[in-house]
């Protein structure tokens, strides 16, 4: 064995083992009836309005109401799975000792994070694929022959994911107990309500628009609409444009900031983990059963 492989080997090995870990977790999710049911119910809940509103056309429009719901469902899928489910899994797995166990392994934290990113990214992309395919099957306005649809999704989905994943990791490392995980939902829903997910942001007061424009959710929603709606609907948006450059810029900033900040926050979170921290959390949890 040469010196190069001796030093590069263990981290490459941990990355490979992390990807395997993510794939196994995904496999466990789809083979566990409870997990699968939870995910499907959530997905069906999101997609049901599409089905019921598929023929319900808006006045002066060729697009059914469902066509406008489709990009909203997609951006919520991306943001919630990417941010909330990653944060939630971090909190739960910190409490149940998963993190501590991996920390006791050489390069175990690297393997853990790669694994988590893999399984969450795969879940998000799977959910988005189901949403898109459902849209194509059900709605006349969305066509698989539209090359722009695939091109936009191809850059927007990975970039949006990169923008929200580190934010989810940071949020997850800040929440102490799974009982408080709901706290993350509150700002996320608040953000969703001003980000043009449910209602065009251009109709909101200008200062609210500026607040929404700081966060990735608005841009993910805009990107999803630009991919799934006919070009004419850009007129309803802020600035009457899909603003692809701005979308890439803001999401890119979030991604870069997250990639720079998240490792330090996660390291800090992992550093606090120890057997006695686990024991005291377990005792607290057993004293106050959920």
């Amino acid at each position: 064995m040469t010196t190069t492989t001796a030093t590069a080997g263990p981290s490459a090995n941990a990355v490979r083992e992390g990807v395997r870990r993510g794939v196994r977790e995904l496999h466990q999710m789809v083979t566990n009836r409870q997990d699968l049911a939870g995910n499907l119910i959530w997905l069906f809940g999101m997609l049901a309005p599409l089905y019921f509103l598929r023929d319900n056309e808006l006045p002066h429009s060729t697009m059914p109401v469902a066509g406008f719901i489709l990009p909203s469902v997609m951006s919520m899928c991306l943001a919630f799975n990417g941010m909330f489910s990653l944060a939630q899994q971090l909190v739960v797995e910190r409490q149940d000792g998963t993190l501590l166990r991996l920390k006791a392994l050489p390069h175990g934290m690297l393997g853990y994070l790669i694994g988590k990113m893999t399984s969450v990214a795969a879940t998000v992309l799977l959910a988005c694929a189901i949403v898109t395919l459902t849209g194509i099957c059900m709605l006349k306005g969305v066509s698989p022959a539209d090359a722009g649809l695939w091109a936009t999704l191809a850059w927007m989905l990975p970039l949006g994911l990169l923008a929200v994943l580190p934010a989810g990791a940071v949020l997850g490392s800040l929440v102490e107990s799974p009982r408080n995980i709901g706290l993350i939902m509150i700002p996320l829903f608040g953000l969703a309500s001003v980000s043009g997910i449910f209602y065009p942001a251009s109709r909101l007061p200008e200062w609210v628009q500026h607040v929404a424009e700081v966060f990735p959710l608005y841009w993910i929603g805009l990107g999803a609409r630009s991919a799934l709606l006919p070009d004419g609907y850009a007129a309803v948006e802020i600035g009457a444009s899909w603003r692809h450059w701005e979308t890439a810029g803001v999401l890119g900033c979030w991604a870069v900031a997250g990639v720079l900040l998240a490792p330090a926050v996660l390291r800090r979170m992992a550093r606090r983990e120890s057997g006695s921290a686990m024991v005291s959390r377990r005792e607290r949890a057993l004293r106050n059963p959920v």
Binding site: E25, D96, G97, A104, G275, V279, R282
Partner: peptide, 13 residues
């Protein structure tokens, strides 16, 4: 080697 007391981690594995 560290022997940790498991609680409910990796339950699905």
């Amino acid at each position: 080697g560290i022997v940790l007391q498991s609680w409910r981690d990796h339950g699905k594995w």
